[in-house]
Nucleic acid binder design. Structure first.
Length: 300
DNA sequence: AACCTTCCCAACCGCCGCAAA
DNA sequence: TTTTGCGGCGGTTGGGAAGGT
């Protein structure tokens, strides 16, 4: 024989808890401790099943529960842990004192998940959703703003053929007019060859990336070591010198949040901006990439 | 002011692993 | 060893709140 049933579900109350029920539950647990949920409701004078009592206590009545908005630091931890653990809400909650798994799950589903989707990031894999991204604009921005290099490399990693199609429309001569530094405008609407070799397209962009990385490193303008554009990696690559508002600050960078205070944001827009920074490298304006394109793009 | 839609979150549901009997 | 319930977990829901028309 197994154990006796926890409770007879017939006749037990369901739905929202009343203040009186809460008081009974709190007083009972303060006197006897939170154990043996099977017998607790009867002993506490509650017409609830043990499971309902346990959930009410652990998710709402526990004295150590922290209520209110999530801080930047908490959100950062949630995103990081979710990228590693997935929907293991209890595991994530164990790293956030005072927050319950239910609260974190709700916050993820109602805020973080939606924001990541708006940003074109898959909330499951934490990588850019290329099916939603406009590759033309990515490529344009890469050439006009090297800080978008990460997106291009991520795009190529996931769907190299699509990227190459965008870069190399067939049967068109190269049209590339170098402009002053940081004013490159890739005329996507006018087909362009940026110097990819035809013999091994699969390696072309990584090679291109590697050369750009090399150039950047040589100029000590950016310490760019890893190209995976997953949120997790971007967050973990704190030593790589990009100026995220959350990363270990560069010497001339003022972080949004100080280490001694908890920071909040007031709007979804601020959060969007904040999260977008997780994917950005900041390359100083002094970087001159003209040489790079002359050497690796135009010479091809 | 009234109605409709969307958002949020507390609570429930159902499943699973573990342990009691 | 087998059966069965408990405790815990993640997914889902429904009702109230908030916002829009």
């Amino acid at each position: 024989m197994g154990r006796a049933p926890c409770c007879d579900k017939n006749g037990l109350k369901k739905g929202p808890w009343t203040p009186e029920e809460d008081t009974k539950l709190i007083q009972y647990i303060q006197a006897h401790g939170a154990a043996n949920w099977r017998t607790l409701p009867k002993n506490a004078g509650l017409e609830r099943c043990g499971k309902s009592c346990r959930l009410r206590w652990t998710n709402y009545l526990r004295p150590d529960i922290k209520r209110g908005r999530f801080s930047f630091e908490e959100e950062e931890i949630i995103i990081q842990l979710h990228s590693m653990l997935g929907n293991k809400w209890s595991a994530i909650a164990s790293r956030l004192p005072g927050r319950t798994d239910n609260e974190i799950k709700n916050y993820w589903n109602t805020h973080i998940r939606k924001r990541l989707l708006r940003m074109g990031i898959d909330p499951v894999t934490h990588t850019p959703r290329l099916d939603l991204l406009d590759l033309s604009s990515i490529l344009t921005s890469v050439l006009g703003d090297p800080s978008s290099l990460l997106n291009l490399q991520a795009a190529f990693t996931i769907n190299p053929q699509l990227v190459l199609q965008q870069i190399q429309p067939p049967n068109h001569p190269p049209q590339f007019q170098p402009q002053t530094s940081h004013q490159f405008q890739m005329p996507i609407e006018t087909p362009t060859n940026i110097g990819l070799s035809h013999d091994s397209q699969q390696n072309s962009v990584p090679s291109y990336m590697a050369e750009l990385e090399k150039l950047l490193l040589e100029q000590n303008q950016v310490d760019y070591c890893s190209g995976e554009a997953s949120l997790n990696n971007a967050r973990q690559n704190r030593g790589y010198g990009y100026d995220s508002v959350l990363s270990t600050p560069s010497s001339n960078t003022t972080p949004l949040n100080s280490s001694s205070t908890t920071s909040f944001v007031n709007s979804e827009e601020e959060r969007d901006s904040y999260c977008s920074d997780l994917f950005n490298f900041q390359i100083p304006q002094t970087l001159d990439i003209t040489d790079f394109f002359c050497k690796y793009v135009l010479d091809s």
